[in-house]
Amino acid sequence: MLAVAGCTTSTVLTSAVVPLNSEKYAAIVIDAHSGKIIYESASNERRYPASLTKMMTLYLLFEALDSGQLTSSSEIPISAFAASRPPSKIGFKPGQSIDVRTAILALCVKSANDVATAVAERLGGSEEHFATMMTAKARELGMRSTTFRNASGLNDPNQITTAHDMGLLAMALRKHFPHHYHFFANRSFSYKGKMIRGHNNLLGSVRGVDGLKTGYIRASGFNVATSAARDGRRIIAVVMGGESAKVRDAHMEELITAYLPRAHPGSVQGQ
């Protein structure tokens, strides 16, 4: 179980960054070295994860790789149900397949819902059972307020989380899979001669940002989980409920600018 140390944030909230004016808003900034929370706003309020869900899908896929259940070249079949998932997607037809390495890129970069469902069916037998596995893993990681119902983050009123829990998941991905974390830094990838570009505009535009994941459904607003490092300091930050990708990204940049210098300097795994 991962531990994140809480702190009182009323003073830093008023002196550094103003929360977004949205009922869907929630945010947290965690010092990746010490685990201390250095900013939070509504971080334990229930929110919809949207495609931040795919961080857990990837967590279980990374576990399957490391255990030998799959290899990077293993093929994942695309069922009719997986192929029918709405965008964002790669656009497979039933009966096609995708190798594991490309599936990881499709999840990290394109946030492909068809691939997320295919991974769920390959690892769990069905997406429903895989969602049960996801929720069990969430509890193991200390994510007490998260329930998963699917592998993609597509709208389900019973698929809920908190900014705090998404911060724990992002921390766990960096801690447990430093050898796979580089996938989150990709802004595009080539597949069958086509360049597929991603949604995370913080990559390459905000100094120190090296992942993780964006997400959006109407019920959630615009979400993002981010890892950023500068000068020996690293933070994990989550913003949920932005009114647009532009507003969300600008707020995340504010949080990074204000709170990364307050993080504890030192060696951070994977930095």
Rank of each mutant, 00 (worst) to 15 (best):
A112T: 13
N113I: 13
V115Q: 04
V115N: 14
V115R: 06
A116V: 14
A116R: 10
T117L: 10
A118V: 11
A118L: 09
A120G: 08
E121R: 00
R122H: 13
L123E: 01
L123Y: 08
L123H: 02
G124F: 00
S126I: 12
S126N: 05
S126L: 08
E128Y: 12
F130P: 02
F130A: 02
A131W: 04
M133W: 07
M133S: 09
T135L: 08
A136D: 14
A136G: 10
K137S: 05
A138S: 10
L141H: 09
G142E: 12
G142T: 13
R144M: 15
R144K: 15
S145Y: 15
T146P: 07
T147E: 12
F148S: 02
R149L: 14
R149V: 10
R149C: 12
N150W: 09
N150A: 02
A151T: 00
A151Y: 07
G153H: 12
L154D: 09
L154V: 12
P157C: 10
N158H: 14
N158V: 01
N158L: 15
N158Y: 09
Q159H: 14
Q159T: 07
I160N: 02
I160W: 08
A163N: 03
H164F: 11
H164Y: 15
H164M: 14
M166G: 07
M166N: 06
G167Y: 02
L168T: 08
L169M: 08
